[in-house]
Design a protein around this nucleic acid. Structure first.
Length: 539
DNA sequence: ATAGGGTTAG
């Protein structure tokens, strides 16, 4: 406990003067005792009591006035970049009674709750841990204490819900309706965004947008644009974008990211270039990250050279390589197989995060540096970075490529048992790939049967690859039937199955597969070696 | 001397 207090003081000594302004003097014995009890309760809850606003011996009671509110807001703002201090200020507000009514007969103010909820948006999920995110818990608390949520309350709540509690979006919307707040443009804008980010169909977001009071403003338009992109309706998004009266960097970034997410990376890059034609200002992190991501996914020299151009922009303007930007850069070089650049970009990212490591690991795993990927994984965990689902995809891929079957199986077990990472379809695919490449077909099939959900085409495809490797025609045929049920669209798989037959010399079966494909509605005749789909060959 | 919304990496 002492250690924490000392750290808070020594790392930010100037903060000590902030709070004294907001305390009222003259504590009675009863008040002193109450305040001690509060401190103990806070301590028991594991929150460090900070000296920053406590004036220690005084009974801290907030007086509700515009002035104290301004101080409170300033106090929180000052601590925005430091998640733990936000928690400390929260603890302070709890112990000082700022979240309670100023007097027994007064109403509880919404203001401190609103500020606090907003501040908590800066706290990464890991620190807040428990499932309902802090802003939503604060909402319950304010309702319980009779504070009346207002138009300033909901934007933070909706943002938080969209990020980590999608199911809450509709209830919050109901709350806004009941309180007559849906005409507020901030609230409406947040609702549009929250619906889109909670996986609702675009029409829900659109409805809120249409029912917003007055003409829509730019932010709301951008929110709807994003909603259309997220719902996958790029045609609607593009036409909406075209008829927007005003567009800013956010509008363009939203469009570029939407196109890129839809797989139209070249279109995304073109849109960005169009944007550059008459944009004179500096580019921000979000825009650069989005463009780098598009560049990463454009195969060939075009993508790489555009990515390099973005990199040189970063260097020229001496932009700080944040985790976000750095990761995008590492990924861009990694996807293009430029492992040297990838590595040096990785090295200069100041505050690396797990995803930064992930980008590096994926690059190594996918470009023949499997052993190095395994070594970097060890470094990553040794330095205290928590591996996540993506990390293990890279790790298992590396094991698969290197033929390290036992090691791969080991890490799969560790992933589930030790890191509590819930395996996704891709992870199962990796393990099936591992087993398959070792020729352990029985185990692979047992493994698939034990999966908590039904295997999709990617998992069967992994096994199919192994069938091809080992000439296991019988199993290939079985898988062929399954794939036909799962997805008649997967023409590439059929071709692989056919090739298994062909290599086995089974021309009859190969022809039959061709017929089956035609029956499944695949425009592909036996005898071709590849199909062209949207300009790229699938074999 | 009172707060809030839209874009971003693996």
């Amino acid at each position: 406990m002492m250690g924490r207090i000392r750290e808070a003081r020594s790392s930010r000594p100037e903060a000590e003067c902030s709070g004294r302004l907001i305390v009222r003097h003259g504590p009675s014995a009863a008040v002193r005792q109450r305040s001690r009890r509060r401190r103990e309760a806070a301590a028991a809850a594991g929150v460090a009591e900070s000296k920053l606003a406590c004036g220690r011996a005084h009974s801290p009671m907030l007086r509700a006035s515009p002035y104290t509110y301004a101080v409170l807001d300033g106090l929180l703002r000052e601590h925005f970049p430091f998640p733990r201090r936000i928690l400390q200020v929260h603890a302070l507000l709890l112990t000082s009674g700022a979240l309670l009514p100023a007097s027994p007969c007064a109403a509880t103010a919404a203001f401190p709750y609103n500020c606090l909820a907003h501040a908590h948006l800066r706290v990464p999920a890991a620190s807040t841990s428990t499932p309902p995110p802090a802003p939503l818990r604060l909402f319950s608390a304010m309702l319980a204490r009779g504070a009346r949520p207002n138009g300033h309350t909901f934007p933070s709540l909706l943002k938080s819900a969209a990020a980590s509690c999608p199911a809450a979006a509709t209830s919050l919307h109901a709350q806004c309706l009941r309180r007559g707040l849906v005409a507020d443009r901030f609230v409406a804008c947040s609702l549009v965004s929250a619906y889109a980010r909670s996986g609702h169909p675009a029409r829900d977001a659109r409805k809120v947008f249409d029912e917003m009071g007055g003409p829509p403003d730019l932010a709301s338009c951008n929110a709807l644009l994003d909603a259309l992109c997220l719902a996958g309706d790029l045609a609607a998004a593009e036409s909406f974008f075209a008829q927007m009266a005003v567009r800013d960097v956010v509008s363009w970034t939203t469009l570029v990211s939407g196109l890129s997410r839809a797989g139209r990376h070249r279109c995304a890059l073109e849109a960005f270039r169009e944007f550059l034609l008459d944009h004179k200002g500096r580019l921000g992190e979000a825009t650069l990250v989005t463009v780098l991501s598009a560049c990463a996914n454009i195969d060939g020299a075009d993508g790489l050279s555009a990515g390099k151009a973005v990199h040189s922009y970063i260097v020229r303007h001496e932009l700080n390589l944040t985790a976000f930007l750095g990761t995008a850069l590492v990924d861009m070089y990694g996807k293009h197989g430029k492992l040297g650049c990838c590595n040096s970009a990785f090295e200069i990212v100041h505050k690396k995060e797990s995803c930064t490591w992930n980008a590096l690991l994926s690059a190594l795993a996918n470009h023949g540096k499997e052993t190095e990927a395994l070594a970097k994984f060890d470094m990553m965990t040794a330095q205290g970075f928590l591996p996540n689902q993506i990390t293990f995809v890279a790790l298992l891929t590396a094991c698969g490529r290197a033929g390290l079957v036992e090691i791969g199986l080991y890490w799969f077990e560790v992933m589930v048992a030790e890191y509590k990472v819930t395996p996704l379809m891709v992870h199962y695919g990796c393990v099936v790939d591992l087993l398959g490449h070792a020729g352990r077909f029985v185990e692979a099939i047992q493994f698939i049967d034990r999966m908590p959900f039904t295997a999709d085409a990617s998992v069967w495809g992994a096994l199919l690859g192994a069938c091809k490797l080992y000439g296991n025609v019988e199993l290939a045929e079985e898988i062929g039937l399954k794939l036909m049920v799962l997805g008649p669209q997967q023409s590439g798989r059929y071709v692989t199955i056919r090739n298994v037959y062909l290599e086995d010399g089974n021309w009859y079966a190969a022809t039959r597969m061709g017929v089956a494909m035609q029956e499944a509605g695949i425009k592909k005749t036996v005898g071709q070696s590849s199909v062209v789909f949207h300009g790229s060959a699938i074999t």
